[in-house]
Design a protein around this nucleic acid. Sequence first.
DNA 1: AAATTAATTTAGACAAACCTAAACATTTAT
DNA 2: ATAAATGTTTAGGTTTGTCTAAATTAATTT
Lengths: 219, 219
Amino acid sequence: MQSTAEENYIKAIYKLSGGGESAVSTTALSESLETKPASVSDMLRKLSAKDLVHYVKYHGVQLTDEGHRVALKIIRKHRLWEVFLVQKLHFTWDEVHEVAEQMEHVKSELLIKRLDEFLGHPRIDPHGDPIPTEAGELREVEQRTLASLEVDQQGVVCRVKDSQPSFLQYLNRVGIQIGTQLQVMDKIPYDNSLEISIEKTKSVILSSDVLEKIFVINP
Amino acid sequence: MQSTAEENYIKAIYKLSGGGESAVSTTALSESLETKPASVSDMLRKLSAKDLVHYVKYHGVQLTDEGHRVALKIIRKHRLWEVFLVQKLHFTWDEVHEVAEQMEHVKSELLIKRLDEFLGHPRIDPHGDPIPTEAGELREVEQRTLASLEVDQQGVVCRVKDSQPSFLQYLNRVGIQIGTQLQVMDKIPYDNSLEISIEKTKSVILSSDVLEKIFVINP
DNA sequence: AAATTAATTTAGACAAACCTAAACATTTAT
DNA sequence: ATAAATGTTTAGGTTTGTCTAAATTAATTT
């Protein structure tokens, strides 16, 4: 079992290496974690002894397979909590991170299993990033703009490109947020606007401007 | 702000002193926290310096007003998370404690405010213990058996006296769990059984045996 | 290719939270 | 009232995770 500090290092290595591709430098880690390079060196020696990273002095670190597995577990927890905070507790995206950062370190397999069920096995977090599966697979999800959907096709909102309050308030008013289920009911050729049904209940007409700013994934 | 360790000491002092009444000994704390008495002495000196406890060497500790306030905050968090785990994630009572113990240390005022709203401002936790208010008041809630309710009176289930699996399964089947809203619809004088409506939907007839084992609070 | 600069590691310290062993208070028993 | 037993604290040490300052290695420039 890893300490909170170790988990944070592993997460940072994962992020900075772009999912485990490239090696990561001590300085990059020290900036990302807001610690001094000397502290990073210390910790890398420790993680290396635990076989969580492959560390060559003066030449950076990479996660081992085990380290990679641990990283995905933490990211899964982080992103599930983000979904919970936004969808159930109505946090805004910017309020979410700091809290999820703490919750991701709570140790309980059962907790995460149940949380996942409670949230309906979400595939993406409120930022549109994919949530690793229980088995530790991270499948990238194809994201498309609402404008690219054909009549009758469905999608779940995963990202919006404009974060101006006025736009977000507009979405709020029509009832669209991350996770909302949409279906294209009709296309108006005149101006390429679409009639969209929201959660299979009400329906609205969205201009092509707006359609370009809303990203969905296939359900 | 207090560390996790400090919070655990404060909580333990609160519990062992019976809510802040009597003083608590070093040994009692060391047993409760599973640490050595020497470690407790260290920490008490530290908490005393922070004015969270009133500590007289060789004569035990008590919480200061500030310490008392902090204790109630932690207990509020712990009990709200317990409600969440049981009501939303379907944890059983024995699975709850260890996890809530970790979650109670997550730092975010907003989180607790929103969690409280999300859960509908519960007044008791899954064990029937009262949840301190945001303002730090802990009002004991009068608990009565279902058998003591009159026709038309309402109650929320807060505790059951029998924890045999067969009994709990029976409750499960009729749809009764902690937090369930009940109302007495009718009394059958013949055997003192009651007709009880469950969550204002279905209704069942419960024998006086069963009625004695279910405790409710006024909503 | 040597010298300078930049990045990294090592060495030695520190705070938090724990420990053991020894010293010191308090309580209890004689 | 004193001695024994019990409870508590102090002193000194350990681990984790951090730090600063000095030493070392790698990269860059001339």
